[in-house]
Nucleic acid binder design. Structure first.
Lengths: 221, 221
DNA sequence: TCAAAAGTGTTCTCTTTACACCCATGC
DNA sequence: GCATGGGTGTAAAGAGAACACTTTTGA
């Protein structure tokens, strides 16, 4: 079956930059392409938008296919439409970024991808298409968003300690943060509630907190 | 002539929110649609992306057709792709916003538009498609961008007074700003250079300045 | 001489930063 | 008892906000 139009139409894809924090490093999910073009190269998960689904639905579908997980924080990043970005035909890609706690995701390769893996940002392989540029933009966006909003909590599981939160900020910003100042600041935001549990370890137990759900995502100011 | 594809393709358009400041108010350029759908309604200027042009080129082309002007500050806003947003076929629209000094633009209606006019934001007519939502997003974006970058200067002509700058900020933010604090802040940024001219009026002449071009667009921090 | 906008400093408040020691647990 | 990360306060500096009068011109 074929589809015919009076004017030429581009193809439209969605691509996702799914980030998580693992081993105190910001990491991104990449898939190894099983098909040409760029067969064997690493690339962002993504695919063509179906005509009967919204853009967000397309990203959610693609991410679910790759990771088996749902319910990521998802936000549109930017649309990339350079004429020559895909050698096959004119392809306009709407890029999204998504955030998830590492344990929320179970990787599974599907038909489009021969492999899927987390990659630390400081150590990325060469990427297919213009995906390196997309990843750059996404990283910039997350770094700045963490400064003026509560997105950082999207990297955390439902129960967490204050040190967990601080480590997220340190991983994203790539620098150490003063423990006392950070705690004071975080508490002044009134975002989190202490639980009656503590986390045990071979040291003093740490108070666990949960995010006040009404405040799950907000900008400061 | 027709165009045939193996899979269905959406149409892709660009839409532009061109803002200016006129009479101390933030205004947006709208065109009155000459054709169905939404014939006779006001809408954002825009049109279909040609397959041999980049997205930015498409916006520049469309704006030039409507206004006869070039060289706007232009930035991608967001892509709108709800399934039902256009009654004709699946249309995905990449929205941009553009800023210009009022005197940079001469309106001219072309074949697609029976009319083109500036509209104050507090007094917008009903808009075609989902354009009201696009305008909302664009206004939010400009308001916040003015706070953390030098975009405001894109509303100003090459020579301006400090009061001119302040009035831009007041118009965008919709509230008065303390004259002394504003001047201190602006000067501390080291963005502008005094000229040897002054602007005359029926009051004390005002020092004219120009923007240091190396600093035309930058974020604070 | 009056109306209109230009130009100019100081004080106070609040926010941000720097910095060091004791605590509770597991081994 | 020692190693590990958890938990806590104060002082100094810097940024932002409040606030009023004199100057220069054209009419």
């Amino acid at each position: 079956m074929t589809y015919t139009y009076e004017y030429p139409h581009p193809a439209v894809t969605v691509d996702a930059c799914l980030f998580t924090i693992q081993d105190d490093r910001l990491k991104i999910l990449l898939i190894k392409r099983a098909l040409d073009p760029f067969k064997g190269d690493w690339a962002l998960p993504g695919g063509f938008v179906h005509l009967d689904e919204n853009l967000e639905q397309a990203v959610v579908r693609e991410l679910e296919e790759e990771t088996g997980a749902r319910g990521f924080y998802l936000e549109q990043l930017e649309t990339f439409g350079q004429v020559e970005r895909d050698p096959r035909e004119r392809v306009i890609s709407v890029a999204y970024f998504a955030l998830a706690p590492a344990d929320h995701v179970t990787l599974r390769a599907d038909t489009d991808a021969s492999d899927a893996a987390w990659h630390a940002l400081e150590d990325l392989p060469d990427l297919a298409f213009d995906h390196a540029g997309i990843v750059n933009k996404a990283v910039q966006r997350i770094r700045s968003k963490v400064e003026y909003s509560t997105v950082a909590f999207e990297f955390l599981p439902p129960k967490f300690t204050i040190s967990d939160v601080r480590q997220v900020y340190e991983s994203v910003q790539g620098r150490p943060i003063d423990k006392r100042n950070f705690q004071k600041w975080l508490m002044s935001l009134n975002l989190i509630r202490p639980l009656s549990e503590k986390r045990q370890g071979s040291h003093r137990p740490a108070q666990l907190y949960e995010l006040d759900d009404a405040k799950r995502y907000r900008s400061f100011d």
